[in-house]
């Protein structure tokens, strides 16, 4: 970006032919650029959040290159080694080992794969279901709307964790099941948001005039409703992804998530819990990974919400 300085408007040498409208347009572009730059600078949180999150994504993709050991490799002679900076620890196992002698660091790195898979796919499924059902409910109205919203409200009324736990216990431990559980049980939230937006825009009178000049439903959908949904849906999706990573770890903690052979943060917490007093690192370090990821997503989500919410922007807060 070049830092083209604006001409001082009151300089005596300003040629009388300077086009004020052009001047105006340039001012607008300059303001938009400085707005973007200031927003990034002002809200360091957004950049920090995005960076943290990218670290986790990077770890998940390149896990085999980052991990120091095979995360499944058991070695009972090396079990329960403390982290490197404690007495008896070594840099070969920087975060120590668990009760079966597996390397904690490598398991945490690989654990990000489960968390991110569940987070991404779970939200993708929830978002897709929610978007479709929300659009249908909002457009169809009447009985269809009642049935869809009745179902959604039912899911939203029961303690979320309760449904998840019961279903997980019934369908059994597998990654696919976990993804499906979260994807389906989280859909009602997206249904509600989508439908709300459809109704808001439908009632705005704006659409009525669009209909009056002969625009079809598809037109209205693509020109008015979807663009308005992008902001809220992306923001909520970010927070929900973070929530799903939480819940997956929680399920693992109860022994209801992916099979115990797969290294996941929840499974590690569960396994370490019984040795909490003697080898605290086993149960607590995976927690830092969860916090790290959640922090990234929440900071980024807050930032996204600020950027995408035009109401906040206008207030200049």
């Amino acid at each position: 970006m070049t830092s083209e300085q604006p001409q001082p408007a009151s300089g005596p040498d300003l040629s009388p032919s300077a086009d004020p409208l052009l001047e105006d347009e340039r001012g607008r572009v300059r303001r938009a650029l400085s707005y973007g730059a200031k927003l990034l600078l002002r809200d360091k949180g957004g950049m920090i959040g995005l960076s943290l999150f990218m670290v986790v994504v990077f770890a998940a993709i390149f896990a085999p290159y980052i991990a120091l050991h095979n995360p499944l490799q058991q070695d009972l002679t090396r079990s329960r080694q403390p982290p490197a900076w404690r007495d008896g620890g070594s840099w070969e196992y920087p975060l120590g080992t668990d009760s079966l002698g597996r390397d904690m660091f490598s398991r945490i790195v690989y654990g990000s794969r489960v968390s991110l898979t569940v987070g991404f796919l779970g939200v993708a499924i929830a978002l897709s279901i929610g978007l479709v059902l929300g659009l249908v409910a909002g457009f169809a109205g009447g009985r269809v709307d009642n049935v869809i919203m009745g179902g959604a409200n039912l899911f939203l009324a029961v303690p979320y964790l309760l449904i998840v736990v019961v279903v997980a216990a019934v369908v059994g431990r597998s990654l696919v099941n976990v993804v499906l559980i979260f994807g389906i049980t989280d859909a009602p939230l997206f249904v509600r948001i989508t439908r709300g937006e459809v109704l808001r825009i439908r009632n705005s009178g704006y659409v009525e005039s669009a209909v009056a000049i002969g625009a079809g439903r598809a037109r209205i959908l693509f020109d008015h409703i979807l663009p308005n949904l992008v902001g809220p849906l992306i923001t909520v999706a970010t927070f929900e992804m973070s929530a799903m990573i939480f819940y997956e770890a929680g399920l693992g903690f109860l022994g209801l998530s992916v099979p115990p052979t797969i290294p996941s943060w929840g499974n590690m917490l569960a396994a370490g819990r019984q040795y909490l007093a003697s080898t605290p690192w086993v149960a607590t370090y995976p927690g830092f990974a969860i916090i790290f990821t959640a922090l990234g997503m929440n900071l980024f989500g807050d930032w996204l919400r600020d950027v995408l919410d035009p109401r906040l922007r206008r207030k200049g807060r």
């Binding site: 001082p8 408007a9 009151s10 300003l14 009388p16 300077a18 004020p20 105006d24 001012g27 303001r31």
Partner: peptide, 24 residues
């Protein structure tokens, strides 16, 4: 445009009597 402090007559861009002094 209120984003710059006035250094000229603010009405100049819309005025039909504008002459050079108005912009200075």
């Amino acid at each position: 445009d209120l984003y710059t402090a006035p250094g000229a007559c603010p009405f100049a861009p819309r005025c039909s009597y504008t002459f050079d002094r108005c912009r200075r």
